[in-house]
Amino acid sequence: MDPINFVILASILFAIGAAAVLLRRNAIIAFMGVELMLNAANLALVAFSRMHGEIDGQIMAFFVLVVAAAEVVVGLAIIIAVFRARQTISLDEPAELKG
């Protein structure tokens, strides 16, 4: 089976992750949506690596993994800080960006 199907799979996962970010109000769930989108991108990278016969794609996915880990650390720290300040992690509550 053609590895291109993994790219299609990655597209579907990406769309699901994006929808989660848009629709869920729980910050942690939305954050997990972001993670899913990142992983979908990783899957596409690895699939391309397989198709081209080059290992660099995997390396890129590795880098994405590392950056995602750093992002998770900071993101979760922010969620905790917000929770401490507001006792909630709903994304609709901190509307202080309102112009």
Binding site: I4, S11, A15, I16, A19, R50, E54
Partner: peptide, 29 residues
Amino acid sequence: IGLFTAAGLGAFLVSVVGRVTVAVSDTPV
């Protein structure tokens, strides 16, 4: 709007990716 956009994005990507054919390397690493 969110659902429509996300689903539209997914459908669009799937349709685009589904239409292309990429030569798969014979020497997998």
